[in-house]
Design a binder for these strands. Sequence first.
DNA 1: TGCTTATCTATCCATCATGGATATATCATC
DNA 2: GATGATATATCCATGATGGATAGATAAGCA
Lengths: 110, 110
Amino acid sequence: MPPAPLNRPVFHILLALAEGDLHGLGIADAVERTTEGAVELGPGTLYRSLKEMLDAGLIRETPAPERHADPRRRYYAITRAGRRTVAMEASRLSRLVEIARERDLLPEGA
Amino acid sequence: MPPAPLNRPVFHILLALAEGDLHGLGIADAVERTTEGAVELGPGTLYRSLKEMLDAGLIRETPAPERHADPRRRYYAITRAGRRTVAMEASRLSRLVEIARERDLLPEGA
DNA sequence: TGCTTATCTATCCATCATGGATATATCATC
DNA sequence: GATGATATATCCATGATGGATAGATAAGCA
């Protein structure tokens, strides 16, 4: 299990794959979209992270979900260990958000 | 305004100061306690961050809250700009937690 | 008092994380 | 088939991080 707290790229990659299988650049696009451009994954960070995450067993390679997908693409799926890991991180973040709320840093309703 | 997303040390220092004024090592202790040891601030990161945050106007130095405080201590308070900054970051984290919840990574009730 | 230990701030440096530049290969389009 | 776009992958420069160290002062105690 990677050390807590998870570094940002790994967390965002896992979060993206928690919704469905994606290939490398698809992950980068998804992360950029869901963070509204705040988090960008350059190719260096992206492919290095993917390799490390494969080695750590957080993700696994998986067949392309579409029939006629570009064969250059390598698709990845999140593993059970990956879900556990990202869930723990999400729960840590959730605690931080609670603290922020207690300190009146967030709107009441949100 | 620092770039979003905020780096971890700065975020945690602001979050700690949002509760009340603290001196350098007091901040480090507070961060370690609220994160249950997950985030540690070494002296290098701590004092460098404080200096940068002073320059950026996120915090300001403030008189010691206790009457007979150790005069070596330098106390810091969060500024209006600091509150805005940490609030934006908290709101970003909150959005991530929402996404994690949508993807069934968090217990229902939490 | 005088001595020892602990606390606090501060800087330096080694290490790790990050992402841009680049390379190579293959696909899609014309 | 020629061209531009897409995809993976590696390399390298830069930035972030934190441990080691230093220096000063406070606190505790014989």
